[in-house]
Design a binder for these strands. Structure first.
Lengths: 215, 215
DNA sequence: CCCCATGTCAGCCGATCGGCTGATGCGATC
DNA sequence: GATCGCATCAGCCGATCGGCTGACATGGGG
């Protein structure tokens, strides 16, 4: 059916900050047909540099990186010159609203969970190389349910308020930190409570950490 | 020096809730001399059942499991009959105080980070099989510094208060939930603030999530 | 052109919080 | 059997929070 020469191996670049995970993925993928791991990056910066040099077809990207650059930012840079750049396939542990949305917006071609079966990973990589989107089932579910019920998204300013809140600051301190009045802080807080479905500051911090709007 | 027959392969059981990680580790470890992966478990319960059946020398355990039983609990059960049970080597992403302490107390023989080099993992597994402790460098640092400065550990009751706090409950509601008076709740809260180095409920939740005392 | 989301601000008020002092009981440790 | 950590409770008080109503400016989308 297929012509072996016309389907060369997918050139893959790994990006994950954990050496054991990288080594494991490399060992795992080396057993897969048609996938060739051409490099490993431990940070976002490294991934950009190596992608420019190695020209991989697909970058397998973890969202949680410990350097200055997170996976979303790295994905955005990798895909911003859409013609030449590699496809980015996100492989992560979390299927949170915020993560999925940001990764897709940043230009990721697919979003896989580490809980997925290895075969899923292989096919997702080959699909990504061909430009086809690949989503884990739980992620797809989440996206659909999100389209049904609109944004629980915080505005930029509300996000800033929330960050100060998580530092344990009082309204007066938040006001000074952001150069606004206490009244404004209280207004924002009220809206944040509404959007997060809570009634107290502690609850807001808990929900925000839960939904990974913080940290 | 060594007699080949007297050093058979280490029988290893993997326990991690992410199928991709398990497959990667298995592929990686299959390339290592003297290590034989005899099984994979996705949950704590599964790990206990498989350990009883397969009698591995070492269980490589992730602390973050998504079933009802977490890695610490599984470790405790695996090691409680100290004579017959396997050695447990924890392999996780976090080197937080609370995680390390609980794992060690639960009977883990070693604590490795996924950011470690694969060679470290191999030697740690062989060491664990021989009963020798294996700690990642950052983890060892943390343990030492912890011995220098005493517990920021919360008492069980304080932990319960904290959990209610993170749900956004008020003092009165926490009191009702735990069948105590508001006065007692306030007393506990004051001590929690002191231990966590904060002054507000929101700050306490943020620090607790940070130190992984919650969730 | 109007509407709506966002961001800004004000005042009021009751409920809640956080700190304080002080007290009791209980189990473990020494 | 004295001491210490833990858990329990009481009352007081000033500061803060959260909800409310109302207001104004900006900027984008219908």
């Amino acid at each position: 059916m297929s012509t072996p020469v016309s389907a060369p191996s997918v050139r893959l670049l790994l990006c994950d900050d954990h050496a054991v995970i990288r080594a494991g993925l490399r060992a795992l993928l080396s057993s897969a047909e048609g996938i060739d791991v051409v490099g490993e990056a431990a940070t976002g910066e490294e991934a950009l540099a190596m992608a420019a040099r190695l020209r991989p077809d697909v970058v397998l990207m973890d969202l949680q990186l410990d350097g200055g650059m997170d996976g979303v930012t790295a994905t955005r840079h990798l895909t911003e010159d859409s013609a030449a750049g590699p496809r980015v396939l996100v492989l992560t542990m979390f299927d949170t609203d915020a993560d999925v949305t940001r990764a897709i917006e940043a230009g990721a071609t697919g979003y896989l969970l580490k809980a997925e079966q290895p075969e899923e990973l292989f096919t997702a990589i080959r699909n990504a190389a061909a430009g086809r989107t690949a989503l884990s089932a739980p992620v797809a579910d989440r996206l659909l349910s999100r389209l049904r019920s609109p944004h629980p998204a915080l505005s930029p300013r509300e996000q800033e308020i929330l960050e100060q809140l998580a530092r344990g600051l009082g309204n007066r301190e938040i006001a000074r930190a952001l150069f606004i009045s206490e009244a404004t802080v209280k207004t924002h807080l009220g809206r944040i409570y509404g959007k997060l479905g809570v009634e107290t500051r502690a609850g807001a911090v808990a929900v925000a950490k839960e939904k990974r709007l913080l940290l």
